[in-house]
Amino acid sequence: MSSDTDRVEVVPVDELTPGERAIVDVNGHDVGVFNVDGEYYALLNTCPHERGPVCDGSVRGILEAEWPGPGERVVESYAETPAISCPWHGWEFDMETGKHVGDQNCVVPTFDVVAEDGTLYVEP
């Protein structure tokens, strides 16, 4: 099938359990593929800041804050949307969109991940 020639096989689905990640070669570029609580994400493993290995970084929900009103303490919580922080300098990206959580002008390219017949693929 022609569509198979474009996409890149990652690993069998059951090898990428929640919390796991894999780094694969996609057309000569390292791409990180993640299973975060059952959702798959894929990002280029190159930080737009200093080209650090962003996909080696820590993954957790984006920290959100709510302000109840004047004089009240800000309430912080983790959103469901995960973010990954580049281990070199902490640049933090929304894994869904690839956009830096504080500056939408800074973007890591993202890729679609599909599961088919027990195998995960990255679609460049």
């Binding site: 800041h49 984006i62 920290l63 959100e64 804050a65 302000w67 800000v74 912080e76 300098h89 902490g90 640049w91 933090e92 830096h100 959580v101 504080g102 500056d103 800074c106």
Partner: peptide, 9 residues
């Protein structure tokens, strides 16, 4: 850009 979680508002 390095510490966005410290200024979440």
């Amino acid at each position: 850009r390095k510490r966005p979680s410290e200024a979440p508002l």
